[in-house]
């Protein structure tokens, strides 16, 4: 369980997060939605340690993690898949995967075993092992990014706008990979611009605006709320990406 308690954070020009209080359930998929600039990605950055909050606490299973470095957060079991372009394109897929295990680099046996396990779940990391990551297709890159985040066996995975810039078909790959991950017992906290996509995939939905949580509820409930549709979805027809409708 992750608990944000009145978290404030920003990049120098005022706080982007204006006191976020939020509880993220174990072993579920939670999706944060909200307009651009609401602070969704910033929420992930403070949790993963890329940005230090100026106030408030973040507890992971009761232990504070808000003052830790990214490496320490990762060691505590929280891995983040960065936004678009997070692979090291000039390194091979294998080197990328090895770096996913950077923290356990001294435990050769454990690292090797873990890479073999992941290769079974995501075959592309074996079939394209010696290709530069930049040469993979968009969908394959996403899969490798997901697999890389799983090397250290994290209990929580953070996804930062996983569908940004992806075409509908690759979105399906992301959809399925996220479910695969969750079925392996991983807690997923994701941020998504594509509201329908995110809430279809998630169990819980969180709506943020202007650096605060407006409300949190089961995802299907949020999807059905008419006022939500008016506020965030526009008056769009009832089709959406994952189902492949145009």
């Amino acid at each position: 369980m992750i608990e944000f308690e009145n978290v404030r954070a920003g990049y120098g020009g005022g706080d982007v997060l204006q006191g976020v209080t939020l509880t993220v359930e174990r072993a579920a998929i939670t999706c944060v939605v909200g307009p651009n600039g609401a602070g969704k990605s910033t929420l992930l950055r403070v949790l993963s340690g890329l940005l230090r909050p100026s106030a408030g606490t973040i507890l992971l299973d009761g232990k504070p993690v808000h003052a830790l470095s990214p490496a320490e957060v990762l060691a505590a079991g929280v891995a983040q898949v960065p936004q678009q372009g997070g692979l090291f394109g000039n390194l091979t897929v294998r080197d990328n995967m090895l770096l996913g295990g950077y923290l356990i680099r001294s435990e050769r046996g454990r690292l090797k075993k873990r890479l073999d396990e992941l290769a079974e779940a995501f075959p592309v990391i074996t079939t394209r092992a010696h290709d530069k990551a930049a040469d993979l297709s968009g969908g394959q890159r996403r899969i490798v990014e997901f697999a890389r985040a799983l090397v250290t066996n994290p209990s929580v995975v953070l996804l930062d706008e996983p569908t940004l810039g992806l075409d509908p078909k690759t979105c399906e790959v992301v959809f399925e990979s996220t479910q695969t991950m969750n079925e392996l017992g991983v807690t997923v906290l994701m941020v998504e611009q594509n509201v329908r996509f995110g809430l279809k995939l998630a169990h819980h939905g969180v709506v943020m605006e202007r650096g605060q949580v407006l409300f949190a509820a089961p995802a299907d409930e949020l999807l059905a709320r008419p006022d939500m549709a008016a506020l965030f979805f526009g008056a769009a027809p009832e089709t959406s990406h994952p189902e492949g409708g145009l």
């Binding site: 983040q80 960065p82 080197d95 770096l99 680099r105």
Partner: peptide, 21 residues
């Protein structure tokens, strides 16, 4: 691993930090 970490940092600092470098 040091070499890989160096090359990773040269490409994307945030991603490097997120794998624990």
């Amino acid at each position: 691993f040091l070499g890989r970490a160096i090359r990773a940092c040269s490409e994307n600092r945030d991603s490097a930090a997120l794998v624990g470098i």
